[in-house]
């Protein structure tokens, strides 16, 4: 049994509560507005930044991230494209090689598969294949997520991209990370898969006033604890926080780590935590087989084998294509209960 809408709303309240705890020099924004701020600041600063995507202009983007940008920056810089993911990324790769800074919006990560050749065989390899002559610094924004969208529209492919050297892959869970990472992605010289989540655009959180960027590296400890380490990213990290709160009430102290950046993976932060808690649970929304959780588990045991007092726990989706019916979908996607159960199995 898993997430309900009520549970998601609770998560959003939790996120907002976390925000209200912080103090001066900060302000509260939604995840969506954090993205909008990042794009606006970069477009204001650099005329080479342009946006390409389906329905991003007059329509404002499927998740309303680019609303109003075409009016502000014009049709030359905010380009409504044909429904042609391969073409969009192909054009962006060409434009990036020729010196522009394209930010591509692919409506969902499911549709990125139509462009995967341009991403994996081109964007990721151009700098290497040219011996460093050309860079392809495009940013591909896309949304992971689910919510009664069916088998081909609810998938979680960050692990596919994190597999590929030459790409940087980020999957922020908070408005602060979303803004700081997106700005770093636009200012950087490498191709970046910037993966959002359809269910967290309205989440609120504190971000620093004024401009800031966050380097595209490093996991972050979201909550300190002593009995078990729970690792996740994106919406999974929010789920882990919710589970940790509930465990806390039962007297179990969890340390929660948000991986945030999936390539390069920060295993050190996880290993340090495991040295303290001796137990590890990895939570992902994707299928576990050949997934990122498998890689994290393998990498952690290589460096922290002697610190582990229990087998590493893993929570993921049930391995079937996603069904549409709400009750079926909730069976498939992991929720707080599964995380709590997995934590208890390690104790």
């Amino acid at each position: 049994m898993a997430s309900t809408l009520a549970e998601l709303e609770e998560m959003q309240r939790e996120a907002a509560k976390g925000a209200s705890r912080a103090s001066g020099g900060m302000r509260e924004v939604t995840y969506r507005d954090a993205l909008r701020e990042a794009i606006t600041e970069e477009m204001d600063k650099n005329p080479n930044v342009l946006l390409l995507g389906e329905d991003i202009g007059a329509y404002g983007g499927s998740y309303v991230v680019t609303r109003g940008f075409q009016e502000k920056y014009g049709r030359k810089r905010v380009i409504d494209t044909p429904i042609a993911e391969l073409g969009i990324v192909g054009v962006a790769v060409g434009a990036a090689m020729a010196g522009l800074k394209p930010i591509v919006e692919l409506m969902t990560i499911n549709f990125s598969l139509l462009a995967i050749d341009q991403i994996v065989n081109h964007a990721a390899k151009i700098h290497y294949m040219f011996g460093g002559q050309f860079t392809a610094p495009l940013v591909i924004r896309t949304a992971s997520g689910w919510g009664q969208l069916g088998a081909t529209h609810s998938q979680t492919f960050e692990g596919w991209y994190a597999h590929v050297p030459g790409l940087r892959v980020v999957m922020p869970s908070t408005p602060r990370d979303a803004k700081g990472f997106l700005k770093a992605a636009v200012q950087g010289n490498d191709p970046v898969m910037f993966i959002e989540h359809s269910l967290i655009y309205r989440n609120r959180g504190l971000i620093p006033d004024g401009e800031y960027i966050l380097p595209l590296e490093g996991a972050e400890v979201r909550k300190e604890g002593s009995d078990v380490t729970i690792v996740s990213w994106s919406r999974g990290a929010i789920l882990a926080m919710g589970a940790a709160d509930e465990l806390e009430r039962e007297g179990i102290s969890s340390e929660v780590i948000d991986m945030r950046v999936l390539r390069p993976l920060d295993i050190d932060t996880v290993a340090k935590s495991v040295a303290k808690t001796n137990r590890l649970v990895i939570v992902e929304e994707s299928w576990r087989t050949m997934g990122l959780g498998a890689e994290i588990a393998a990498a952690v045991q290589e460096v922290a084998f002697d610190d582990l007092d229990a087998p590493i726990g893993r929570v993921g989706s049930i391995e079937v294509p996603m069904p549409y019916a709400r009750n079926l979908e909730r069976i498939i996607i992991p929720g707080k209960d599964e995380v709590i159960q997995a934590v208890k199995a390690t104790l």
């Binding site: 342009l50 030359k76 810089r77 391969l86 073409g87 990324v89 192909g90 054009v91 962006a92 790769v93 060409g94 434009a95 990036a96 090689m97 020729a98 010196g99 522009l100 394209p102 050749d117 341009q118 065989n121 081109h122």
Partner: peptide, 18 residues
């Protein structure tokens, strides 16, 4: 993989045009 340059060349031209 053949023809991928056909998708990229318009991007180069877009940069020149802009």
């Amino acid at each position: 993989p053949v023809a991928t340059q056909i998708a990229q060349a318009p991007g180069i031209a877009l940069a020149s045009k802009l």
